[in-house]
Amino acid sequence: MIERSPIFDAISYGVMILGLMLVLLPFWITFVAGSQSIQEVTQVPINLWPSSHLLENLQAAWDRADLGPKMLNSFLVASGVTIGKIVLASLSAFAIVFFNFRARMVCFWLIFMTLMLPLEVRIVPTYAIAANALQPVQAILDVTGISWLLQTLSGVQVSLEWNLLNSYPGMILPLVATATGTFLYRQFFMTIPDELVEASKMDGSGPLRFFWEVLIPLSRTNMLALATIMFVSSWNQYLWPLLITTDRATYGTVVMQLKALIPDPTGLPDWNVTMAGALIIMLPPLLVVALMQRWFVRGLISKDK
């Protein structure tokens, strides 16, 4: 605080409270509508105070959208992406920063370039690769003539296939194949002083031991930040799981179920159940962000800048 200016302070509070209302309004309406009965929710104008039907609406939404198994799927996919990303990103950043090998910069740029194109813009071909993840191997075998050779020698036609549609790897792996985490870990590893590496070498410990006993404990904050960002973004995925799961009943995630909760224009406008469902689905990532705020804010900023 530099000078006292009571009037300007009052204006500041005014703006901040308006902002608070703007940000909270959708949450509040979701909560209020989710707690009302169908008579109350169809009232015009609506009463903006919660009513007493929250539990039964939550129950109705849970049953209607079959949220039990869908929750489990969402948790499996989100934790799969989070863990996969942390493991792969820390290992690859370790190789890029602490090893001197010829293709180091090429590898870095190969990974870094993936930041440029979000999954959404290459959705059609990524879908095709998910239908058969061994397609590139097959292409290599065909082009180099190995499959022709094998066919003439053994009479067996080579057609490799690994279908990822309707499977957890299919939902997880394409989301892991980006540079976000690698970049975050790289930024952090660059700040490790050379002396630390030398000291560890002098103690006679090899690279893996250095990684496990020095780098991993030091990068704990980094890991929490990355975990928060990855959990939230993979929980909230919509387009990719929608494409890759045709078997909605077994592999559907909660976010995909939102659309099924919207009342049919010609049917009963039971928005109270829809809103109760939306509330359940928003809650896990919101809790993660609220609890981890301190770490993830730091991670987000160093990731993108």
């Binding site: 940000v23 909270l24 309004l25 959708p26 949450f27 309406i29 979701t30 509508a33 929710v41 169809t42 009232q43 015009v44 104008p45 609506i46 009463n47 939230v232 929980w235 909230n236 919509y238 976010v255 939102l258 659309k259 909760l261 919207i262 406008p269 928005w271 829809t274 809103m275 939306a278 689905i281 928003m282 990532p285 919101l286 993660v288 962000v289 609220a290």
Partner: peptide, 23 residues
């Protein structure tokens, strides 16, 4: 907070807020 919300979840909430028949 809005950072944590799935776009489709916000979409459903806003669809209700803007629904012509709702209050």
């Amino acid at each position: 907070w809005p950072y944590a919300i799935a776009a489709p979840a916000a979409g459903v909430a806003f669809r209700f807020i803007f629904a012509p028949e709702s209050g």
